[in-house]
Each structure stands twice: as structure tokens, then as C-alpha cells.
Design a protein around this nucleic acid. Structure first.
Lengths: 135, 135
DNA sequence: TGTACTGTAATATTTTTTATTACAGATAAA
DNA sequence: TTTATCTGTAATAAAAAATATTACAGTACA
């Protein structure tokens, strides 16, 4: 559960709690003690995936692009994970070793399976569900 | 899928393929182009969890402490994850914000759920299974 | 007694993450 | 139309984490 996912989820939570309002990156960053530029970077990914919308200029900011019941945490996870999303193993095993030669592929396959399990779990929880846990 | 898990799995694979032999950290490290001290560090964790045994002195090295059918990748995952294993979120949200005040706990809970999903998946695969994928 | 290991600490290097600074472009309002 | 306040983005710096290196004590064997 890395920092990027935390930022994205935090922002979506705020947007969900204040529907209709445009929230600025400064406001949001202040709410989580993080740098505004990082917030804008994560927002770019969320927007690329169609989860949020943004408006530039004075009175600009961010808002949800979908009802919170339609956004799952799996969507968020996949959005912030871009752009790698393909080929994550920088293996450097000894190719002269029969195990070393093959293990990279097997570990990659395993990583894919684990990734799928994570996404399956996260796909059962929407932002709406998540926010409803709050008092 | 971090480097520590990779090292641990790689070593266990080698141990499984060469039963009865004691493998040295130097040999193993050479097989995966990694520093021998890192290998010894991971081995300490695996031994603490009873997955391997080690022997010091000349002709020393590492061997499996259990039949490979009894070691799951979940065991490995949990072993290398020590010692944190408790309280992973270094949250620094603004406590003056009602969302910031609570989100840390909710994200921690979520992280626990995801962790459980990962372990569930990995517990279905033994080292024996993993090694059997190799030619 | 010398050799070849593990165990471990201390330190350095590399990589990754996060923060900062800077500024162009957009939009609204004075 | 000018000024203020945003987003978007790049470039750079600082901090944190992962990995590598060096060093050496302790152990076991031949």
C-alpha cells in the first residue's frame, strides 16, 4: 500500500464527501500534509482513467467523474500503478545457472497471479463503501 | 514482489533442486548476481521461521529444514516480511481534517485485508510446486 | 593451525520516492 | 484588460529505502 495509492484514495474520499465542489490541489495537499505537485501528478493518472475531472484556471480544481458507487479501489489501484503495468521484474540472475535462467519468468508469472488476487479483493470495495466507514 | 522475496525463493529453489547438499551463500549469491551478505540476511529470517537450517564453519552452508511440499510461498512471504509485520503506515495526515484524522485507520485495515488476500493466494503454492515448473 | 564457511555490524553506494522551485497556460473576476 | 488563482508539467533537490561492500569475530573441519 504505497503513498500514491494513499494520496489517490484520500483525494477521492474528500471529493466524495464534498460532492459538487471543486477541490484544489493545495487544499487537498494541506489535508494530508503532502506536496501539492504530488497531488496533481496522481490526479493526472486518475483523470487518464476517467475517474475524476479537472478544471483549470481560477476557481479550478478536481471533481469526481463518476458516482462513487461506480469507482472501486481496484480502479484506483490500477490507475496509480500506471505507467509500468507491464514487465516489472528487473532480473539479473546468472544465465549460466539453469535455475537463474528460468526463475525470472516464473517469478513474473507469480507476480501476475498475486496482482490479480489484489485486484480481485479491491474490486469488491467502492469509494462509496470506503467513505461510508467514516463517522 | 520485492527483492527479498526473490532472493528467498531463489535460494529455496536451489536447495530443493540439490537435496542433501549444503549450499554456501557465495554459491547462491553467484547464481543470482547478488551480494552474499544479502543472502545471509534472508537466510537468517528463513531460519528464524524454521524453513531452513544452517551450518557454520568449513563445509558449512544452508539446507531445507522441511520437505519442500511443506513449505508454501506464503511461509516465505511472511518470513522475509519480518520484522515489521505490524504497523506499516507512517501516516502524517492533518489531524485538523475530519477525513485526515480517520483515514489512516481505514487504510491500515484495508492493507491488512489486501495482505490477507496475498497470503491466501501464496498459501496455495508450495516450493515443490514452484520448482516443478522448471524444466 | 590454516582454510572456508556463517553471523553480524558498520558503512557506502545506488535507486526510488517525495519535496521543491519555477513557470507556461487557463479561467474567472475586479 | 489586468490581476489573481488555479492546473499542467518539467527540472532539480532532498530524503528515504534498498542494495552492496568491507571487515572481522566465531565455528568447524581437515
Amino acid at each position: 500500500m504505497n503513498g500514491q495509492f494513499q494520496i489517490a484514495t484520500h483525494v477521492l474520499t474528500l471529493l466524495c464527501k464534498q460532492p459538487g465542489e471543486l477541490l484544489s490541489s493545495d487544499y487537498v495537499a494541506g489535508s494530508m500534509n503532502v506536496n501539492p505537485v504530488l497531488v496533481r501528478k496522481e490526479m493526472r493518472k486518475l483523470r487518464a482513467c476517467g475517474l475524476i475531472e479537472s478544471k483549470e484556471g481560477k476557481t479550478g480544481g478536481y471533481s469526481l467523474a463518476l458516482p462513487p458507487q461506480k469507482i472501486t479501489l481496484a480502479d484506483v489501484y490500477k490507475a496509480v500503478k500506471l505507467p509500468p503495468a507491464l514487465g516489472q521484474a528487473k532480473n539479473k540472475p546468472n544465465p549460466a545457472c539453469p535455475v537463474g535462467k528460468q526463475i525470472g519468468a516464473h517469478l513474473d508469472h507469480l507476480a501476475d497471479d498475486v496482482e490479480a488476487a489484489i485486484i480481485k479483493k479491491l474490486s469488491t470495495i467502492t469509494i462509496f463503501d470506503f467513505v461510508n466507514q467514516f463517522d
